[in-house]
Computed example of a mutant assay.
Amino acid sequence: MRLCFLVEEHYRHDGMPNEVIRQLTAWGHHVDVVRPGGSLLRMDEVMGSGAHDAWVLKTVSGGPGLTLLEAAAAAGMTTVNDARAIRGVRDKALAAAIGRIRGLPMPPTYAVARPELLREVPAAQYPLVVKPADGSSGRGVHLVSSPGELEALLPELAGEHMLIAQPYVANSGTDIKVYAVGGELFATERCSPLHPDPAVRERRVPLSAEVAAIAAQVGAVYGLDLYGVDVLLGPDGPVVVDVNDFPSFRQVPDAAARVGRAVLGLARTGSRAAPSVGRPPAPGLPLPIPAQAPAPQSSAARASAAPAPAAPASARAGEAAL
């Protein structure tokens, strides 16, 4: 199988996706790597060749990679995840609208094109979490305790194109990150970017049935196959505060092999279609939510599930100078 990975400079030396690329190559598959931010690309030639079975995106939210992935999808190529689904979660204002409309437990969200418009958020909504609508990896996240604190922050926010603000959800200072890969869910606990504590180490934790159900619903709502969900355990129950396409999968056992198998499966069958924006599920139609988190596969099961390698002569990983 031939795959194209779109990997921006931010992730050039990152374990994810480089370990996945190495694993796929070891299985005998051909992987081309395109650096969207560092290549001159003639779009009709890149997209018109049809040489790849699937395109995979690992880029920062505001980078050019998603444009290339959408062009590949428009040319009829398989993408991992569905390009429309990725667009739906990378714009955090759009993601909040979709999630709330379709019944996800998410905080109310204000969106502004100019930071001074945040002055109009009612004082009763404070403290606020303010962040860029195209942010990623915790960039630019601020906890604002009062309108006066917002005034002092406005000059720092001036460089952002669009911002969102959400009422702060009281929590213990740690987030639950749920990773979805190959139909399985894995939960980790980590320090919140709003409450940095070097003593808190990211670790695997048991996944409750309630959080597992919400994480599975996230995939159905946005049309994602490989994704991560940030959940806070607030006073009124779990709250979804962020959704990421193709996250780091840290702490997931055998992550490179699991993600590699998932990519190959999606390349063969196609990603699930993104749902229509703004149309909630019909009453009485259940979402595909598991009653409990799936049990991880055993090492023997993982070995038997590994794809058969292609002919060794076709195995090559390289950076395409497209």
Rank of each mutant, 00 (worst) to 15 (best):
A291E: 14
D236V: 09
G173S: 07
A72K: 05
V243E: 10
V141F: 06
N18M: 14
V239A: 11
R258Q: 15
P307G: 06
P198Y: 09
V240W: 14
A187L: 03
R250A: 13
P196D: 08
Y11R: 01
R302F: 00
L118M: 05
V218T: 13
D14Q: 06
A74D: 12
H13F: 13
S271H: 04
E9A: 14
A313P: 00
E120V: 01
S172L: 08
S39R: 12
P286N: 07
I176E: 11
V221R: 08
A165P: 02
P312D: 10
V46G: 03
P206S: 04
M162W: 02
A124Q: 11
E156Q: 02
D91Q: 08
P147V: 10
P238V: 10
V141P: 06
E184I: 01
Q251E: 15
V243C: 01
E210R: 12
Q251N: 15
E156R: 02
N81C: 12
G237H: 09
P281N: 02
G219E: 13
V60N: 07
A73W: 05
I98P: 05
L150T: 01
E160L: 02
V252L: 05
A51G: 09
G284W: 15
R2I: 01
T79A: 02
A124S: 12
G63E: 12
Q125L: 01
L94A: 07
Y11H: 13
A74E: 12
L128H: 09
M162C: 01
G223M: 09
L6R: 03
V46H: 08
V221Q: 07
P235T: 14
A255E: 10
A133Y: 01
V56Y: 09
H30Q: 13
G48E: 07
L153V: 06
G50N: 05
Q297F: 00
G50T: 08
S136T: 11
G228F: 10
V20R: 05
P147S: 05
A267L: 06
V259R: 05
